[in-house]
Design a protein around this nucleic acid. Sequence first.
DNA 1: TTGCATTTGTGCAATTCAGCACAACACGCA
DNA 2: TGCGTGTTGTGCTGAATTGCACAAATGCAA
Lengths: 208, 208
Amino acid sequence: MAFNSNIPDIVIGRLPIYLRALNRLAQEGHEVTSSHELGKRLGISSAQIRKDLSHFGGFGKQGTGYQISYLEEKLRQVLQVNREWEVALVGVGDLGTAIAHYRGFADRGFHICCLFDNDPQKVGKKVGEGLVIQSIDDMPNVIKKNNIQIAMIAVNAEHAQEVADQLIAAGVRAILNYAPINLNVPEGVHVQYIDPVLHLQRMTFYLK
Amino acid sequence: MAFNSNIPDIVIGRLPIYLRALNRLAQEGHEVTSSHELGKRLGISSAQIRKDLSHFGGFGKQGTGYQISYLEEKLRQVLQVNREWEVALVGVGDLGTAIAHYRGFADRGFHICCLFDNDPQKVGKKVGEGLVIQSIDDMPNVIKKNNIQIAMIAVNAEHAQEVADQLIAAGVRAILNYAPINLNVPEGVHVQYIDPVLHLQRMTFYLK
DNA sequence: TTGCATTTGTGCAATTCAGCACAACACGCA
DNA sequence: TGCGTGTTGTGCTGAATTGCACAAATGCAA
């Protein structure tokens, strides 16, 4: 499975959306779908879906469409989500606690395996099932030891860059950042941002 | 302030990012910045920032750059976030509760004004400061009466489309959807999605 | 078998988007 | 004043992305 980086990021970004829609279709009892049906659901042109998928091989059958279970499997392979990933979570305030309790991660293959906080009062406390908050001082060692490649940052904006630097130094290569700030990271490290207010501000422009 | 819709969505989408960075710069004590400095922070070319801003007028001064407070004000005007917005939240499970408690919304002008849930056990309960969960049956009336235009959906995937339809029928025109499903909405209604797993799946592709 | 209705995968055209490069301007300093 | 440095706003060019349109393939029905 050796896809070079000549596949546009924007295409990769759509694959999880396709995968999510396929999940849904399967749940609804469909066994086969078409680029047209998918596109209609997602508000994306059928040609684009076909072209995106064709980057990775011919997964469909002319005249018939795509077998959902097969396409799901193939997309999981491409995205490398046909396995379990261990994820570290840094910052166990209100937001971090909510994230730690959210079951949607484990359900879809992302297992939060360790929590870190810099507040000595919190270190040692239990959160959810079997998770204990560890000191941020131990973070580098724990991450290296467990070879963790993905982390979520839920500290405040002031500390986010510092935390990111430490994570990256310890070997993390993908960061999901909940802090409302842009991170500067070296080449080869991937960052995604979640800031709900940003999404809201994106929509108010269009309200009259 | 009559900007036609000939301004690309992708440009509008970057404005909140600029605004967030300007906030940060102001907090750090800067009074003036340049497209180059902003771009360096955000990983965006300076030319793009200048071009984006130029869609709305000349906010900078040649040789000097941009006065941060002035540019912030102008961007707030453009995005219409120089006012308070009332937001409805539907679904008060774990996720909805966390959202209701999150202070980041009110801090940046989005005031969660009402909560709805379909569980009779929850109706009447208090959440946070002064918010009481209302029955989803009352949702249309409350939304119409208060002329609420923005809603957040934190119900499960099965109910999200139904809730969205009701919200839109009641007058909502912007939806922030936390449910892991794509919504079909009529023209003129805007939807933004938050699904952290989707962001994670976007990054695993690149991990070796 | 033949014909018809579908649907994929893809070459090509059109559109959108990003970046370069420079004239015009601003400021500070000698 | 005059010069050097710095920065904006923008026309133009190139790149990236999307969409069209069709040949090839599939399945079904007559």
